[in-house]
C-alpha cells in the first residue's frame, strides 16, 4: 500500500519586476494532502486547473520533493530512498511529449528499459509483451513522429510499464483522445488493476471517467483535499438533493395534507395537475419509502415513479463551489 501523509509543497521562485528588480514568490501548490493507494485499486484525483493534481503526482513519483509530509510504499520511505522508489513506480502523462519522436517504439522502449538496468533478454521479452498489450506490435519499427495521437499515448503507457511498476500514476491519460480510444485506454487501465494487481492513481477532468474507473476518489481544491470517498459514498454523503417524481391518480386532500405533514421542513414538495397529479419531492435524504407508505395508506394509486440519482458531476461542482 502507498500511504502519503500530510504532503505539502511550497514553490519558491523569483519573478522579475522590471530589468533588475526581482520579487520572491511563495506558492503553496499542495497543502496537507493525505491519501492512500491500495494494490489492485484505482484511485482518482480530481479538481480544476491549478488545483495541485500534477504537483501531488510528481511528489508521489519522486520527481519533486515535498516541503513537508511523508510517503511510504510498503514501509519504504520514498522521500529518503527516492532512487529505490523509482524502481517500483512509474508516471504516465497525457499528451504526446516524454518520448523520442525520431525513434521507433521499439527503440524508445529499449532506451527507457536500459535506464532501469533491465537485462537485455528480459527487456526484449518484456517489450514484446507490452507492445502486444497496447496493440503496437505491428507499428513497432515506425518512427513515433508518424504515429497518431492515440498510438503515441499507447506508447506512453507501454513506457510506463517497462519497469513492471507496482504503482502507476496517470496524469490526464485520456487528454485529447477521441471517445473510442479513450474508452479503450480505460479498459487497459482497468485491466492493469484487476489482472496485474497494480495500484493506480489517476487524475482527469472527465468525471464520467472517474465514475467508471475509480474505486476511491479524492477531490482537491486549491491544494487541499476537500472531499473523499468511494463514488457511492460521495453521492450519499454529499448529494444536496434526491429527487422523486410520482404520477398519481386522484390525490385526496387528506393524503395531500398528510404527505406535506410528513415531509415538512425536510423536503420541498410541489404538486401539480388536475385529475392526474404529479408530485415532485426534492430532499437531501431519500424519503421514497415514507412517501409510498403514506400514499398507499390513503389508497392513492401510483401510476409512475421516477427516482433521480444524484449526479457525480453536480456533487463535485457543489463541493468545489463550497470550498472556495
Amino acid at each position: 500500500m502507498l500511504i502519503a501523509t500530510n504532503l505539502s509543497k511550497k514553490f519558491v521562485y523569483k519573478e522579475s519586476k522590471g530589468l533588475f528588480k526581482k520579487k520572491l514568490i511563495v506558492k503553496n501548490a499542495v497543502n496537507d494532502v493525505s491519501l492512500k493507494i491500495e494494490s489492485g485499486k484505482i484511485v482518482g484525483l480530481i479538481g480544476v486547473n491549478g488545483a495541485g493534481k500534477t504537483t501531488t503526482i510528481k511528489m508521489l513519483a519522486s520527481l519533486i520533493k515535498p516541503t513537508t509530509g511523508e510517503i511510504l510504499i510498503d514501509n519504504l520511505d520514498i522521500i529518503k530512498e527516492h532512487k529505490k522508489a523509482k524502481r517500483i513506480i512509474n508516471l504516465i502523462s497525457g499528451g504526446e511529449r516524454n518520448i523520442y519522436w525520431r525513434l521507433t517504439a521499439q527503440e524508445n522502449l529499449e532506451y527507457f528499459g536500459a535506464l532501469y538496468g533491465i537485462p537485455k533478454d528480459v527487456l526484449n521479452q518484456k517489450i514484446e509483451t507490452i507492445l502486444e498489450m497496447v496493440g503496437l506490435t505491428e507499428s513497432k519499427d515506425i518512427p513515433v513522429e508518424r504515429y497518431s495521437k492515440g498510438m503515441k499515448q499507447r506508447l506512453q503507457i507501454a513506457r510506463g510499464l517497462i519497469n513492471d511498476p507496482k504503482y502507476i500514476f496517470l496524469d490526464e491519460p485520456t487528454l485529447g483522445l477521441d471517445i473510442n480510444i479513450a474508452k479503450e485506454l480505460r479498459s487497459y487501465i482497468r485491466k492493469l488493476a484487476d489482472d496485474e494487481n497494480k495500484g493506480i492513481l489517476l487524475t482527469t477532468h472527465y468525471i464520467s471517467e472517474v465514475e467508471e474507473l475509480c474505486d476511491y476518489i479524492y477531490i482537491i481544491s486549491n491544494g487541499y483535499i476537500v472531499a473523499e470517498g468511494t463514488p457511492d459514498e460521495l453521492k450519499e454523503e454529499l448529494s444536496t438533493k434526491t429527487q422523486v417524481v410520482l404520477t398519481v391518480e386522484v390525490l385526496t386532500e387528506q393524503a395531500e395534507v398528510e404527505l406535506k405533514d410528513i415531509l415538512e421542513c425536510k423536503a420541498e414538495v410541489t404538486i401539480e395537475g388536475e385529475n392526474i397529479h404529479t408530485i415532485k419531492v426534492i430532499s437531501k435524504e431519500n424519503f421514497t419509502a415514507e412517501i409510498i407508505r403514506c400514499l398507499s395508506s390513503h389508497n392513492v394509486s401510483i401510476l409512475n415513479m421516477k427516482l433521480m440519482e444524484p449526479d457525480l458531476e453536480e456533487i463535485v461542482l457543489n463541493v468545489l463551489r463550497r470550498s472556495e
Binding site: A61, K84, R87, R97, N98, Y100, L115, Y116, G117
Partner: peptide, 18 residues
Amino acid sequence: QNGTLETIILSPANWLAV
C-alpha cells in the same frame, strides 16, 4: 523541451552515467 529529460529523471538511472 520534449519532456524526455523528465522521463529520464523519472528513472533511477545514475545521472553521471547519462
